[in-house]
Design a protein around this nucleic acid. Structure first.
Lengths: 215, 215
DNA sequence: GTCTATATCACGATAGAC
DNA sequence: GTCTATCGTGATATAGAC
């Protein structure tokens, strides 16, 4: 979906050193973009974090925008691998429990990825307009279909499925994106696995019950 | 809370022209910070949006950081005025209905404010560390107390109140912060009042029911 | 394939004329 | 109180030596 933006991928040769350095740079860039956003990020900071000379970054990536796009592509790949679709044929409780758990796992394991993406969207997504195309809309409708089906079968209440999906996204991403606020509220420096597990539990209970599923 | 950061407020003279220009600049700065974050924002862009010469910005505000702090103070003021505390003496359904509606109204009316704040937190809140002090923790505990009380009275399920509060925040702010994504999912350019009303409705139903409140 | 040196420009900030 | 001219810095990006 995003790959069309930067037409450079399958046509990469990929010596061993190159691949390794590119991965180091992308990881460093992810941290820098998460902290300072696209405009605020500097190639210098990325080089420092990567432990490479500044101009090596330019050697491996044409410019800042291309590097940024590569970071985003990486994130979407991660996303696709970590999250399975909601299974319409399962019972709502089981399907939702698994989906929420997967989303929360993602928030805990890849908070930087979540934040880079969040910042892009907060800015109005000027660098990834193509991503939010009609294709995206269709992908979203397949998501909501699951809930429509469940509602038709009388398994859950007739609540607008779009807003159920938004709720699943917002409530789970929140723990990655707003971690410092949540930690401060809980009186901690950062969140532990236990905090994430408790959050997963609470969210699962509230949402399953909230949409009217009766064990 | 934040005012201690910049010790400059009550001690402002405030000729009529000054006050007017400062308001114009703060509004312009809010838009620029929302779009590009603190580091990514430029004084030049702010001046352009304000329709004033660039150096006027420096005349009214010492530097970029002070202007940013002023924008944040403005946002917190707005916040304090728009949102009442949850009322523990009301029935959960009524209290939550009102709170969710108020948060959603804020998301619709002040999306830029929400986004500036969100970006600061996403960055790890380096410019407003003081805000997340022990005072913040105490304020948060007063929030959760309401739910603890309701749970003790058997009005709602015994769910960790902290995560109920996080859910209220995340689900409502999402409509301001991630508007472009939501609009794309719904196949629209931007969100209408009707979209917000429907979201408010869905969230209210799911959350009230989800925490186990039985009409 | 890798790094040094540098061109070019936009940034935040200020000095001083009006 | 307001604006013009400009300074110094640090940014992206590139040319070319190794």
């Amino acid at each position: 979906m995003l790959m069309e933006i930067g037409s450079h991928r399958a046509d990469k040769p990929g010596g061993r050193i190159r691949q390794k350095n590119e991965q180091i740079i992308i990881a460093a860039a992810e941290a820098e973009f998460a902290a300072n956003g696209f405009k605020g990020a500097t190639m210098n900071n990325i080089a420092l974090k990567a432990g490479l000379p500044k101009s090596n970054i330019h050697y491996y990536f044409k410019n800042k925008l291309q590097l940024y796009i590569e970071v985003l592509i990486n994130i979407i790949d991660l996303w696709d691998n970590a999250l399975n679709e909601l299974d319409a044929d399962s019972e709502p409780a089981a399907a939702l429990r698994e989906y929420i758990a997967a989303k929360m796992r993602f928030s805990r394991e890849y908070p930087l990825a979540s934040r880079v993406f969040a910042k892009e969207i907060l800015s109005g997504a000027p660098r990834i307009k193509q991503y939010f195309s009609s294709e995206y809309r269709e992908w979203f409708l397949r998501k909501t279909d699951v809930f429509s089906k469940w509602a038709q079968q009388g398994k859950i209440d007739p609540i607008d499925p779009a807003h159920i999906v938004f709720l699943l996204w917002s409530s789970t991403q929140h723990y990655a994106d707003f971690e410092v606020q949540i930690a401060a509220a809980l009186g901690k420096k950062s969140l532990s696995k236990k905090d994430f597990d408790e959050a997963t539990d609470a969210l699962t209970k509230i949402i399953i019950r909230g949409i009217g599923y009766q064990g």
